[in-house]
Design a protein around this nucleic acid. Structure first.
Lengths: 192, 192, 192, 192
DNA sequence: CGATAAACGAGACGGTACGTCTGGTCTTGTG
DNA sequence: CACAAGACCAGACGTACCGTCTCGTTTATCG
């Protein structure tokens, strides 16, 4: 019956990570990355990759998951609003470098394949939105913001500028800018 | 001497538009589109395309400009805030269809080529931001919103959700949703 | 693993032969023949050709070998001198038609690539020279000609006019002319 | 009325010669030589070349004529047989270098175009054959060889090995080898 | 001497082919 | 039966020339 080779799987994911890492020599963009290249680099046959992943994007998503990309924590010890600011600031900080480039390229790939978009949202967007929605609900409980808007709507309003700046490479992703951005988004939500 | 053939130029841009139009049979995504295909379809030699455009993305941008893609007007007869809402709503309406798919794919291409991003911003984002910034300044003059924030910052805050929804294909782009979104963005800017 | 496809190889060689055959409609010269054309005609990808042959000339040489071009026999039942005449006459007869045109074009290609020349000589000239040298040695043994000259030298003297007439398309390649030519070449070699 | 520009004509022929001269850097074979390249190198427009020459080969032949290629003289002061040997030896000496490579490539081109072959024979082969035929007739008059064979036939027999060695790049073109070759060709023609 | 007509440089054009690359599929042993 | 190895068809890449075709711009002759 021959079971799936864990060794091959690891080699594939590691090669993918290495090839996409722009701190390595000979790194490539997601667009330039090919199954052929991964197979060659991992010492694996193309068939093996095609057997277990439907396309390049799926391999990349698995790679990112394997490499714990963008697991941004939430401070439970802070007041909700401050924890929210911290969360967004630290996420933006991560996006402001190598992993940000990867994310923007992954979002680019999503524009060409619905199932990739689904996977992306499932693994990278929805969990994050969930976290922020929880924080907002906590802020409402703490009386820091009004509770008359859906939390998801607010979460989007807070997050959208992050992705906007990432994809348009315009507007800074540093602590000050992001704090300002979050505050602006929340400005109209102060309790009456 | 030997002047550029307007006929060829038109044929190239029209073929590009047709090939990218998902209402046509045999349409393709920007990723799938190739110079070879455009040349074949336009009855033009590849050389002619390479002579005048550096790459596929440049042809596409010219095509969009030629086809007045996303030229969204501003109502001068309305109060600034209302004109702003109308502008965003009508832009979102355009993004909510065929042209939206094209734009999201173009933004995707921008992730792989800085000069494409520059062109994109120059032709499609900055003009729009300018329009909105003007409206915000007018709104300040009209006393509808406070004037203690840079107009560009507010413009970004208003626009970011539009692009977010476009790229993440999540959250509606209809009139009600967009009005809500704009109002949320402006909520904290009411004059004291 | 993954062994070479005999089917593709055959298709390539047959298409090449067909394309070069001036009795077929749409035939081309060796100069006009392109890898692209062979691939198209054979229903094979260019990669497959480039994988197995270094260039056009190599494909053509293989094609000629496969099609037994210019395999001229030697009569063992005749006296050496007569067998020699017969051999040259029959070779010239072959050169006096379609296969002669192909050979002259192949020799033309040899002027541009040393390795093609080597292959040509290995497969088409040296075997023939060998045959004639043998015949000359036999003629010496039979006492028909003197033995004080190297056989290869005499072989060249006999053969040179054949190639000269082929390439210059001057001087006939028929039985009488070739017999005269051979006799002239051998005239000075009669035993004393 | 504008008369043909001698300046352009010269520039074209000189560039052609330079490009074909393998002692120059960046030299090319006749096959690699293109009208485009000549025009660029000569600072002339392609039109001008196409206006005055039907094809590449014609330019090359004119170039060779202009550069006195292969004008091999005949010694009138020597006995016919010796002058003949000298002539062949000195021609072979010229063929044994740079100009020989050019000639063999020109003969190659002739295999693809009858009119080029005609021009080649008219300018390079027939004059030479004429010279040799005259020498043979003189040799007959001098009583050095028999007169019962057509001079042209003998000329071919003498010349064929030269072209053979040139094109097959086999067999030396030095003085000794060529003398031997001529003597072998004439061996059977000694007066009875 | 000014009109005219050919020759010129420049270079755009539709084509064809180059040799390379990658995609995704299929085939053939090996362990 | 998963795997590596890799052959296969398909087709795009960007470049080089092909030979044709305008373009203005000389430049020489002729009216």
């Amino acid at each position: 019956m021959a079971i799936r080779s864990e060794h091959s799987r690891q080699a594939i994911l590691q090669s993918t990570m290495k090839l996409l890492d722009d701190r390595e020599p000979g790194s490539v963009t997601i667009q330039q990355l090919s199954i052929e290249r991964i197979a060659r680099d991992a010492g694996v046959s193309k068939t093996t990759i095609y057997r277990w992943w439907p396309n390049k994007a799926a391999v990349i998503i698995d790679t990112f998951l394997e490499n714990h990309i963008l697991a941004t924590p939430v401070r439970e010890d802070l007041p909700a609003l401050e924890a929210l600011r911290e969360h967004v600031v630290s996420l933006a900080a991560v996006y402001d470098g190598h992993e940000g480039r990867l994310m923007s390229q992954l979002i680019a790939e999503c524009q060409y394949d619905p199932s990739t978009l689904d996977e992306f949202k499932k693994h990278f967007w929805h969990p994050r939105r969930e976290v922020v929605s929880r924080l907002i609900e906590r802020a409402v409980e703490e009386g820091s913001i009004r509770g008359d808007r859906p939390a998801d709507e607010i979460a989007e309003q807070i997050y959208a500028p992050v992705y906007f700046r990432l994809l348009f490479q315009e507007g800074a992703l540093d602590r000050d800018s992001m704090t300002t951005s979050v505050d602006l988004a929340l400005a109209g939500l102060a309790p009456r």
